[in-house]
Amino acid sequence: MNFQNEIIKWYKLNKRDLPWRSTTDAYVIWLSEIILQQTRVEQGLPYFNKFLQHFPKVEDFANASETHVLKLWQGLGYYSRGRNMLFTAKQVMELHGGIFPVKYDELIKLKGIGEYTAAAISSFANNQSKAVVDGNVFRVLSRYFGVEEPINSTLGKKEFTELAQSLIEDQQPSLYNQAIMEFGALQCKPKSPLCSICPLRLNCFAFKHNKVDILPLKLKKVKIRERWFNYFIGVKDDHVLTKQRKPGDIWEQMYDFPLIETLDNEEYLKPDFWNQIKYLFGNEVNIKLLSQKKHLLTHQIIYVQFFGLDNYIVNFNLHAEIKSVLIEDFKALPHPKVISNFIETYL
């Protein structure tokens, strides 16, 4: 049995009908690849359609404002991807005359495009013989060939990349890359893979050695950071208090509410916390707890508390980072998911 032939045979029978599979337009493929990074197809597809509708050509994307891009991106997470895409679109206009490159060596030089994305675009748009190695491919190769090097180790990445590249030789790159990625997504799934009906199971190392639930191996994850955000909601005369987040932290350049970050969820009861509140909103301010949420990010857990403000005064000259804007205008701005969820319920 030939591994590649079986993968392609399976793909032709089982592949999903996805819009970016019917084009060789590198720009459209790039949109799909960046949007679907660390995102399920079901979640990413509406965003792909929305971006393509707003920015049908790379020139349209390059001319967009960051605020517009982040608003469309809202809810997808990893917001640096959206900012990088805007930068990349401008690069394509400046360096390639508005024609999205299709060669690996040119793609890899663009911001936000790594080895995987460059391989995907160059193979799908230009049939270049570059193997894609994403989470789905790692999993299929590790299980079938019995590769036990951790997928996130230097040696593991090298071994998987070399194996993947050897398998794509003499194949139609676009077809084979799509096939093995789809096989990992639908058949050789992370949990509950469909081994009983898998066409590769008889020669699969993991299946034969009872290691399906073990492979692929991965080095221990980085420590999760816990943070406590206390947001203050001030509403007067159809206006709400807001601020734009600064660079260098999560959700940079997006909009939320005035915030005090504390070291734990009890610190808001302490005098120093109240001193900060009075400094921001005046000595006569009253607060009321409106909502508490636990927001999960890849390497952070954010415990969020929303407090309503009453009888507050803001010195906008002293606190220039805080703005008072119309609620309807505020809703049109890009927000982190935890903020947009709050807005839907309370504003």
Rank of each mutant, 00 (worst) to 15 (best):
Gly156Leu: 00
Leu167Ser: 05
Leu141Gln: 09
Thr154Val: 14
Gly156Ile: 00
Phe145Ser: 14
Val147Ala: 09
Ala164Cys: 01
Glu159Arg: 15
Asp134Met: 06
Ile151Glu: 02
Glu169Trp: 02
Pro150Cys: 09
Val147Cys: 10
Phe145Leu: 13
Leu163Trp: 04
Asp170Val: 00
Ala164Lys: 07
Glu149Tyr: 12
Ser153Pro: 13
Leu155Asp: 12
Lys158Met: 02
Gln171Leu: 01
Asn152Tyr: 08
Phe160Tyr: 14
Thr154Tyr: 13
Leu167Met: 09
Asn136Gln: 10
Ser166Asn: 13
Ser174Thr: 03
Val137Gln: 08
Thr161Tyr: 12
Lys157Arg: 11
Ser142Glu: 13
Arg143Cys: 08
Ile151Cys: 02
Glu148Tyr: 10
Val140Ala: 10
Leu155His: 10
Arg143Trp: 11
Leu155Met: 12
Leu167Gly: 04
Gln165Phe: 00
Ser166Cys: 07
Ile168Arg: 08
Thr154Gly: 04
Gln172Phe: 02
Glu162Gly: 03
Asn136Met: 07
Gln165Val: 00
Thr154Phe: 10
Asn152Ile: 09
Arg139Ile: 12
Gly146Met: 09
Glu162Trp: 05
Ser142Tyr: 14
Gly135Asp: 11
Leu141Ser: 04
Leu167Phe: 10
Tyr144Arg: 13
Gly135His: 06
Asn136Thr: 05
Phe145Thr: 14
Ala164Pro: 02
Gly146Ile: 08
Ala164Ile: 00
Glu169Ile: 13
Gly135Phe: 04
Phe160Cys: 06
Phe160Leu: 09
Gln165Asn: 03
Arg143Tyr: 12
Ser174Lys: 11
Pro173Ile: 02
Lys158Phe: 03
Gln171Ala: 01
Gly156Val: 00
Asn136Trp: 07
Leu141Asp: 08
Val140Asp: 07
Glu149Gly: 01
Glu149His: 12
Ser174Arg: 11
Asp134Arg: 05
Arg139Tyr: 05
Val133Ser: 15
Val147His: 10
Glu159Cys: 14
Pro173Thr: 03
Ile151Ser: 06
Glu162Asn: 13
Ile151Asp: 03
Leu163Met: 09
Lys157Pro: 02
Ser174Ala: 05
Val132Tyr: 06
Ser166Asp: 13
Gly146Pro: 04
Val132Pro: 07
Leu155Gly: 06
Gly146His: 09
Ser142Thr: 14
Gly146Thr: 10
Thr154Trp: 06
Thr161Gly: 04
Ile151Lys: 08
Gly156Met: 01
Glu149Gln: 11
Gln171Phe: 02
Phe145Tyr: 15
Val132Asn: 11
Ile168Lys: 06
Lys158Pro: 01
Pro150Val: 10
Phe145Asn: 15
Val140Leu: 06
Asn136Phe: 07
Ser174Glu: 12
Pro173Leu: 01
Tyr144His: 15
Ser166Tyr: 06
Gln165Lys: 00
Leu141Ala: 06
